[in-house]
């Protein structure tokens, strides 16, 4: 294989790895946001009832 092929693979690996981590983080963030929304809905319902 050409040296430049290794170079391209290496750069792709580094940045795709980092962006995969960022995507995973944003997934977690979405999950937290969803949980918070459920909680605030619950709270509203409780307030309406009382």
């Amino acid at each position: 294989m050409e040296h430049s092929t290794y170079l391209i693979i290496a750069y792709m690996a580094i940045w795709s790895g980092l962006s995969a981590y960022l995507f995973w983080l944003s997934g977690r963030q979405r999950q937290t946001a969803r949980r918070l929304e459920i909680l605030s809905n619950q709270l509203k319902r409780q307030e309406n009832r009382s």
Partner: peptide, 20 residues
């Protein structure tokens, strides 16, 4: 967590350099 992610990338990029 970040350390593990970075070390993984270090090992991968290092191998890709070491091969040629």
């Amino acid at each position: 967590e970040i350390g593990v992610v970075l070390t993984t990338l270090v090992l991968i990029s290092g191998s890709l350099w070491g091969r040629p």
